[in-house]
């Protein structure tokens, strides 16, 4: 099947430095891809190019016609000065019946927050709200930019669990940028290591053994990943026996 989003040889240059250097990447149906990389590796820029709000200097981005993309952005601090309830925020610019709003609210476990003002919510609640908003309109691809950044460990865990549930229950593909290596390894199907260019990519367990991954994140990290991997395989096989 042809990919939903396809980037070929994308290059972005800033101040004579290549932020993205000849990056090619396909997001296919039911893919779950995580982009890893140190700070300033060009991860967010790659997402911006793929989403189409930034035009790369060279290379091209192809998308399936009328592709429905749901986007969960990086940070989100809501100003006190703007009075707005969660429900109203979810409806902004979305012409959907109330039933749809309630459905995604239930799916993301925010139905009790709908009447609350946006600015009093915790970081974890806000990320779930952004996730809920991205699901309105039944997206074919979810694009997430470090969605669990600034959450504490239990918040991160809850968020990735929810994301995994959404991936299993909905017929969508996921493309995510993340720093949370340990969580990522347990949920994602494919990892792409980015440091301006694509260093290595593949299944998580394969990538952690790649010398490029080791040189980018260090031996300790690679070994730690192997441990997380191990734990994950167990829980997963447990599920399939159910």
């Amino acid at each position: 099947m042809s990919p939903l989003i396809s980037a070929s040889s994308v290059t972005v240059t800033r101040d004579n430095k290549n932020i993205l250097d000849n990056v090619s990447l396909d997001v296919g149906v039911r893919d779950f891809i995580t982009i890893l990389g140190p700070n300033g590796a060009g991860k967010s820029m790659l997402l911006k190019c793929l989403m189409g709000f930034f035009k790369p200097e060279s290379g091209k981005i192809d998308k399936k016609a009328q592709l429905r993309i749901g986007y969960v952005p990086q940070q989100f601090t809501s100003e006190q000065t703007m009075p707005i309830t969660v429900e109203r925020f979810l409806q902004l610019r979305k012409n959907v019946p109330m039933g749809d709003i309630i459905a995604v609210a239930t799916e993301t476990n925010i139905e009790t927050l709908l009447q609350k003002p946006l600015h009093i919510l915790s970081g974890g609640e806000r990320q779930r709200i952004l996730l809920a908003r991205s699901l309105i309109g039944d997206p074919e691809v979810l694009v997430l930019d470090e969605p669990a950044q600034n959450l504490d460990i239990s918040g991160q865990l809850a968020f990735y669990k929810l994301l995994e549930k959404i991936y299993t229950t909905r017929a969508l593909s996921i493309l995510m940028v993340s720093h949370d290596l340990h969580m990522v390894m347990a949920t994602t199907k494919q990892v792409i290591c980015l440091f301006h260019h694509i260093c290595c990519s593949g299944e998580p367990q394969v990538v952690t053994r790649d010398p490029e991954f080791v040189s980018l994140f260090g031996h300790d990290m690679a070994e730690m990943m192997a441990v997380y991997q191990h734990g994950h395989n167990h829980t997963h096989s447990g599920h399939s026996h159910d």
Partner: peptide, 19 residues
């Protein structure tokens, strides 16, 4: 109105929704 309110709450989100 709604585009302005959305981009005031979150600029990237608004951009992703073609504002």
């Amino acid at each position: 109105w709604s585009s302005l309110v959305l981009m005031t709450i979150h600029e990237d989100l608004a951009m992703a929704e073609n504002v």
